[in-house]
Simulated scan of single mutants.
Amino acid sequence: MLLCLFAGSAFAVDPLPFRDAAEEARFRELAAELRCVMCQNQSLADSNAPIAQDLRREVLELMQQGKTDEQIKAFLTERYTDFVLYRPAMSGSTLWIWIAPPLIFLVGAVFVFVLVRRRSSAAAATPASKDGDAW
């Protein structure tokens, strides 16, 4: 019973030593823009993975060294590629990320349009049944 009571403290996250509320707000905003390299679909702020904890500490250290958000993102991108950014800069290697969603939407819209047109023209071409004239 006692083990169950104290088990929660084993999973507690070490609080980061922020200098002030402005630094904490900047950190939270930056951590929300960075992706956990292990979890893939969680931000650095949301992930509980050990590497995310290390990266949060590293981001805070870089902030406290006076690095700008852009310098921190550049450092992490150099180390972990553009994958670490939720909104990577448009470049030759990330162009497909920006083009694929609208292209997929457009292809889907054309497919639905063609399907609807075929069904409506097939329904119009079908002759009326004789049972419908019994009224």
Rank of each mutant, 00 (worst) to 15 (best):
M1T: 12
M1V: 14
M1P: 07
M1R: 13
M1S: 12
L2F: 09
L2Y: 07
L3I: 09
L3A: 08
L3C: 06
C4W: 10
C4A: 14
A7C: 09
G8Y: 02
G8V: 02
A10N: 04
A12C: 08
V13E: 13
D14I: 02
D14A: 12
P15R: 08
P17N: 09
P17H: 04
P17T: 03
P17D: 11
P17G: 04
R19L: 11
A21Q: 07
E24D: 07
A25R: 10
R26H: 13
F27C: 08
E29T: 11
L30C: 02
A32Q: 07
A32V: 02
L34V: 03
R35C: 04
R35T: 03
C36A: 08
C36Q: 01
C36P: 01
C36K: 00
M38Y: 05
C39L: 03
Q40Y: 10
N41A: 07
Q42A: 05
Q42K: 13
Q42D: 12
S43A: 05
D46V: 00
S47L: 01
S47M: 01
A49N: 03
A49D: 02
I51S: 01
A52E: 00
Q53A: 14
L55H: 14
R56V: 01
V59K: 02
V59E: 05
V59W: 02
L60V: 13
L60D: 02
L62T: 03
Q65H: 06
G66I: 11
K67L: 13
K67V: 03
D69N: 15
E70A: 15
E70F: 04
A74Q: 14
A74R: 11
F75Y: 15
L76A: 11
E78S: 15
E78N: 15
R79Q: 15
R79N: 07
R79H: 10
T81M: 08
D82G: 04
D82Y: 15
F83E: 12
V84W: 00
V84G: 00
V84I: 14
L85F: 00
Y86P: 00
R87V: 09
P88Q: 06
A89R: 12
A89G: 08
M90E: 11
M90Y: 09
S91R: 15
G92T: 07
G92N: 06
S93Q: 14
S93P: 01
T94H: 09
L95D: 02
L95Y: 07
L95H: 03
W96P: 01
I97S: 03
I97L: 14
W98I: 04
A100L: 11
A100W: 07
A100D: 02
P102G: 03
P102V: 06
F105S: 12
L106T: 12
V107S: 08
G108P: 01
G108W: 02
G108F: 10
F111K: 03
V112G: 01
F113S: 09
V116W: 06
V116T: 11
R117I: 10
R117F: 08
R117M: 11
R118W: 06
R118K: 15
R118L: 14
R119A: 15
R119Y: 09
R119V: 08
S120E: 13
S120T: 12
S121E: 13
A122E: 15
A123F: 06
A123C: 03
A123Y: 06
A124D: 13
A125R: 14
T126W: 05
P127A: 08
P127H: 04
W135V: 11
